[in-house]
Computed example of a mutant assay.
Amino acid sequence: MMQLWDLKTNASATLPKTGQTSKAGEKFQTLGTISPQSCTKEALERAHNLTKLAVRGQLACLLDGRSFDNMQKLERLVSLNLQNDIYVNPASRRQLRGLPPSFKFPPNLKRLTLSHTCLDWSNMSILELLENLEVLKLKDKAFMGACWEVAGRFRRLKFLHIGRTDLVTWVASGYHFPRLRRLELHSCDELIEIPIGLADAPNLLALDMCYAELAVASAKKIQEAKQRMEEEQKSKVGGFKLSIFPADEE
């Protein structure tokens, strides 16, 4: 299958070892889902045309060691999906110690998805430094902890999804998300409020909430602030949209 461009599997696949002179995988553009053990220097150097990569398994062996160094060589990669193995005992082994430095990530990465990594929110300071990041999906306990205080700026981020987390307090403003267009909060049932300062994010046009009842009041305040801005600027282009599920009875 020397001409194969795309490989997609539901389960985590382990790539077969090939000889140094082999050209197998050189034309791959989409590869997923593969095991962390398959992210070897030889495999990723050969698959230099990759644009999309999904990895699933015990990510500690990928993120904590030198294996992740190979990612920075994927100059064409724009989409990376990292799913940690949740069937690990004891549960403490599921939590990763941290993320690699930002310079080890693919240099042109635009879309990043993390799942079940149970990272501390302090690691978001690393993702802030990914200069081309436009889409960030934090799914199923990707980050855990009561407080996230945003320190830097997500300069190009347009879409942010936070799902199934125990986040209680979130401190941020429009300054931190200058290009954010859409925010999704799913199963954030402990989050007290969405930062009101996000109303100042000039490009924010959509807020989607699902099972985040405590934060509904703050979402409505953001909606009201956006409506006032539209009236003052006499602009109805796009229009801010707020979606709440379950629907508010009021």
Rank of each mutant, 00 (worst) to 15 (best):
T117V: 07
C39V: 03
F28Q: 01
Q29S: 11
K221H: 06
A54I: 11
R164S: 11
I222A: 01
D248T: 11
K241I: 10
K52A: 08
I222Q: 02
V237Q: 06
E184F: 13
N132S: 13
E232L: 13
A60E: 13
L204V: 03
K137T: 10
H48N: 06
L82Y: 04
L167A: 02
D189P: 03
E231G: 09
S102I: 06
D166H: 13
S187Y: 15
A151N: 14
P202V: 10
K27G: 00
D140C: 14
Q83I: 14
L44M: 04
A172R: 03
L207N: 01
F28E: 00
K137W: 13
M71Q: 02
E193A: 08
L53M: 05
C118G: 09
S22E: 02
D248G: 02
P195D: 05
G65L: 02
V135Q: 05
Q58W: 12
E190K: 13
E193R: 14
A206P: 03
A199Y: 08
N49S: 06
F103L: 09
V171W: 11
R228Y: 08
T169E: 14
Q20K: 14
A225K: 14
K23S: 07
Q83G: 10
A60T: 15
E26C: 05
L191W: 07
R228V: 09
D189V: 14
S243P: 05
S22D: 02
G32Y: 05
R56K: 12
P178E: 06
K17A: 07
R164T: 08
Q223C: 07
I86R: 15
I222P: 00
G32T: 08
C39D: 01
M1C: 13
I244N: 00
K236F: 14
L77A: 01
A24E: 10
S187D: 14
A225C: 10
L62P: 00
F154L: 05
L119Q: 01
G197E: 02
Q37E: 09
N84M: 07
I34G: 00
E232P: 01
K8G: 01
D140I: 12
D120G: 09
T117E: 05
A142S: 03
